[in-house]
């Protein structure tokens, strides 16, 4: 037999076979005997079919990535602000110390200058 003949033979002969007598009754009996717990109507309304869920996963992943990105940026920005404030505070302290030191030096210089002029006056 050629493949074409096999093909035609299969098309002709391979019909569906009738289910045995009483098959539907047997199925209904099994369904009735083991009651199926179905989800409540309110929840069933929110059931998503696999086809509808095809858009859901990419949307969920995108939303999560966005949330992670925004959170990371906020944390990073907060850290930078804190660092800047810390640096400013250190600078202020350093400036105050320097200023006090300069003032002390200036006072000593002034005192030294006054003493010198006093001693010069007394020599004359």
């Amino acid at each position: 037999m050629s493949e074409n003949e096999v093909d035609m033979e299969l098309k002709r002969k391979m019909r569906r076979v009738a289910a045995p007598d009483g098959f539907a009754e047997a199925v209904m009996g099994r369904v009735a005997a083991s009651p199926v717990r179905r989800r409540p109507m309110a929840l069933r309304r929110f059931t998503l079919s696999p086809r509808r869920m095809a858009w859901l996963w990419p949307a969920l992943v995108s939303a999560m990535l966005l949330a992670v990105g925004v959170t990371s940026y906020a944390v990073h920005r907060q850290r930078r602000l804190e660092l800047a404030a810390e640096t400013q505070a250190r600078f202020d302290v350093a400036m105050r110390i320097t200023s006090r030191t300069l003032m002390r030096v200036s006072e000593e210089v002034t005192r030294a200058g006054v003493k010198r002029s006093d001693s010069e006056d007394s020599e004359k």
Partner: peptide, 15 residues
Amino acid sequence: EFRRLVEEHQSMVFS
């Protein structure tokens, strides 16, 4: 309605 569905598809599934 479910029984009607069973009767409609039983031959297909059984075959």
